[in-house]
């Protein structure tokens, strides 16, 4: 997917984070009717656990629900991380999250949500 990374020089860290948070919120909206409202939260936590070996600065998401991430948290936890690196990390997180949805339900709900999220991220560029 990695829609943000190409133009990361022109956007701030907060904007990148907000774009991906919106993406996760969209996933949440779409997944909740099928798998309940807790699922996306734990999918993101599980995904964070898997990517944090590559992107240690995302480890805080293992314990903290993504819904609690506000601008101050972004400033605190992600200070010193470049926009490019952050976009790559959040994209990896998103991919892992989709991998999780596929692991749970196969191709029943993942493909349309993936397309919708991709479109949304493109619009936010």
């Amino acid at each position: 997917m990695s829609n943000m990374s190409d133009h990361s020089s022109s956007v701030s860290r907060e904007q990148v984070a907000e774009a991906y948070l919106k993406a996760f919120r969209l996933i949440d909206d779409r997944v909740t009717p099928y798998l309940g409202k807790v699922t996306t939260r734990v999918l993101v936590q599980g995904a964070a656990k898997r990517v944090s070996s590559t992107y240690p600065f995302l480890h805080f998401l293992v314990k903290m629900p993504y819904t609690d991430v506000v601008p101050t948290v972004v400033q605190e936890q992600l200070s010193g991380v470049s926009t490019i690196e952050l976009a790559a990390a959040l994209d990896a997180l998103l991919q892992e999250c989709f991998a999780g949805i596929k692991e749970l339900t196969g191709d029943l709900i993942a493909p349309p949500i993936y397309d919708e999220v991709t479109r949304q991220l493109e619009q936010l560029q």
Binding site: T39, L43, G46, E103, L104
Partner: peptide, 8 residues
């Protein structure tokens, strides 16, 4: 086992 790992 695989599915359990993705939901933490």
């Amino acid at each position: 086992a695989s599915a359990a790992s993705v939901i933490d």
